[in-house]
Nucleic acid binder design. Sequence first.
DNA 1: CACTTAAATGATATAACATTACATATCAAC
DNA 2: GTTGATATGTAATGTTATATCATTTAAGTG
Lengths: 159, 159
Amino acid sequence: MQNDHFQPHDHARCISTAVDAAERFCAAQGLRLTPVRRRTLEILLSEHRALGAYDILAKLDADGFGSQPPVAYRALDFLTANGFAHKVEALNAYVACTHPGADHAPAFLICRSCGVVEEAEAAPDKGPLARAAREAGFAIERAVVEAQGTCPACRSEHP
Amino acid sequence: MQNDHFQPHDHARCISTAVDAAERFCAAQGLRLTPVRRRTLEILLSEHRALGAYDILAKLDADGFGSQPPVAYRALDFLTANGFAHKVEALNAYVACTHPGADHAPAFLICRSCGVVEEAEAAPDKGPLARAAREAGFAIERAVVEAQGTCPACRSEHP
DNA sequence: CACTTAAATGATATAACATTACATATCAAC
DNA sequence: GTTGATATGTAATGTTATATCATTTAAGTG
Ligand SMILES: [Zn+2]
Ligand SMILES: [Zn+2]
Ligand SMILES: [Zn+2]
Ligand SMILES: [Zn+2]
């Protein structure tokens, strides 16, 4: 794993890297990183935890954007459709992507103690699930891979 | 894979096997497979698709059980806690277990065309995710592994 | 059997997550 | 500047899930 956000790290760099990548990608693809979309990405990037759509909506509202659910859901749809954020299905919540750039298949390690969500590569063509799919003749299009447990930082606090 | 519920099969046997296994397990463990719990399991077993809690609730209501959400959620809690059913996080819906018996880590193949959900073994200690977890010192307690795509039966219909 | 206690159910209310629909505004191209 | 496409504002509604408290049922105990 290139990064490990369970440990203390230069988080300002996490934010600037991701925002820069989003800006460059949007410029290159003719996508519009509008103020509400950009602010939503910044909100997600502010921590490595998954945030609910209504948590995000409350912050957007406080910042002078709209106060109705579609404001948050539209921004999240844009960010997830373009790979800048992901939905964590097990939490019904959203997290900024930490593997910005190309299209990819995310997997998550979710600490149930501190809430930090670490993104890894799912490698959808490998592993036991891919084998079961091949045996059944099933064509995988998208995979949700989310492990819940405890991160090293939390376990060292409660030994 | 022992079974493959994407293909035609003796489904009455699926049902009787699973209900029998649940009855034996409850008898052995001193658990109470009450009428509403048993009926909920039968409803889930009636098809190999995931059903929403409110779909189940409507059927329970029609059968003379209660009509309020906790009726369905309590029965589903019992069934999932004891391994007779699983929640499919990507669908916010529930499916009967087809690997009855011991405690196990399920993975799912979900056909987005016909809705059939096939259960496989997740093998939580293998695969790329387990490797990433070991590298990060993360202790996995539960894994959500859900692949969405198309099953062989549906693909042969739309070639 | 009567008593106690834990588990399960009934019922009400509310919280949390998400979408539809339609009006208005902004932007890019012509 | 007009046009058409994209984005936003806003109201209403739909869907999924939980909290709380009263009541009933079942199991264990003397
Ligand atoms: Zn960081
Ligand atoms: Zn990502
Ligand atoms: Zn069957
Ligand atoms: Zn199972």
